[in-house]
Simulated assay, not measured.
Amino acid sequence: MKLDMQGTRDKNQNFMVNQYHDPAYGFDLKAVLDRYEFKELADPKTREALETAMKNGDKAAVTVEKDGAKVTLNIEAVPRYSQVNFFTLDGKAEKREQFLKETALDKAVSVSKDKEKAETQSQGMGL
């Protein structure tokens, strides 16, 4: 659930609530987490605890490798965009692309190249 701070308000001037139901909304947390290399994903019990915390809307601490060093970050689920957001322990945002597995990164690059190729083909030769 998320408060819609930009939209209209109800008759009592309260913010409306956007709801993203699992799995009806189409957000697959397990598939999204599999795109990243977290130390916590290796142990099934730790993975289950991580998924449960994120489904409840909590930020969860994970250990990742950044610039050759192990770093602890907080992550939160963003069902609206089928992603997770990364934050340092002091709350600063981190780019999620740097933590993708190599195979997930390669797929993302190939999809963007395919879209670019399709756009140039649809434009044709402009005279």
Score class of each variant (00 low, 15 high):
Gly91Arg: 01
Phe38Gln: 03
Ile75Arg: 01
Thr103Pro: 06
Val111Pro: 02
Met1Phe: 03
Asp43Leu: 08
Asp10Met: 07
Val32Pro: 10
Gly91Ile: 01
Ala49Ser: 12
Leu73Ala: 03
Ala60Ser: 06
Val62Ile: 12
Val17Trp: 01
Lys59Arg: 15
Ala69Tyr: 14
Ala61Asn: 10
Thr46Glu: 15
Val78Ala: 02
Lys95Met: 12
Asp114Ala: 12
Phe27Leu: 02
Val71Met: 14
Gly124Cys: 06
Tyr25His: 11
Asp43Met: 04
Asp67Glu: 13
Gly57Thr: 11
Pro23Lys: 07
Leu29Ser: 02
Met54Gly: 04
Ala108Gly: 14
Lys55Val: 04
His21Tyr: 10
Ala31Asn: 11
Glu37Trp: 03
Pro79Gly: 04
Ala61Lys: 11
Val109Arg: 08
Gln19Pro: 02
Gly68Asp: 14
Asp4Arg: 03
Lys59Val: 05
Met1Asn: 06
His21Phe: 07
Met16Gln: 15
Lys55Gly: 00
Asn18Met: 05
Thr120Asn: 14
Arg47Leu: 12
Asp43Asn: 15
Val32Asp: 00
Lys107Asn: 12
Tyr36Asn: 02
Pro44Trp: 06
Thr72Ser: 11
Asp10Arg: 01
Asp114Pro: 01
Leu29Arg: 01
Val84Cys: 04
Ala118Gln: 13
Lys30Val: 15
Val62Tyr: 05
Ala31Thr: 15
Val32Ala: 00
Lys66Arg: 13
Met16Ile: 11
Gln98Phe: 03
Leu3Asp: 07
Lys66Met: 11
Gly57Leu: 09
Lys39Asn: 10
Tyr81Thr: 13
Ala53Lys: 07
Lys66Asp: 15
Glu48Asp: 13
Asp67Ala: 08
Asp43Tyr: 09
Tyr20Ile: 06
Ala60Ile: 08
Ser82Ile: 10
Gly57Phe: 03
Gln6Gly: 01
Asp22Gln: 12
Glu40Gln: 13
Gly7Ser: 11
Met16Cys: 02
Asn14Ile: 02
Leu33Trp: 07
Ala42Pro: 04
Leu73Trp: 02
Phe38Gly: 05
Ala49His: 10
Gly68Asn: 09
Arg9Gln: 12
Ala53Tyr: 04
Lys115Pro: 10
Val62Thr: 05
Gln13Gly: 05
Tyr81Gln: 11
Leu105Thr: 05
Ala53Pro: 02
Phe27Lys: 02
Gln123Met: 09
Leu50Glu: 05
Glu76Gln: 13
Arg47Ala: 06
Thr63Ser: 12
Phe99Lys: 00
Val64Ile: 15
Lys45His: 06
Gln6Tyr: 14
Val32Lys: 03
Ser122Gln: 15
Val32His: 05
Val32Gln: 09
Ala42Gly: 08
Glu119Asn: 13
Gly26Tyr: 08
Asn74Cys: 07
Gly91His: 03
Met54Cys: 00
Lys55Leu: 14
Val62Gln: 00
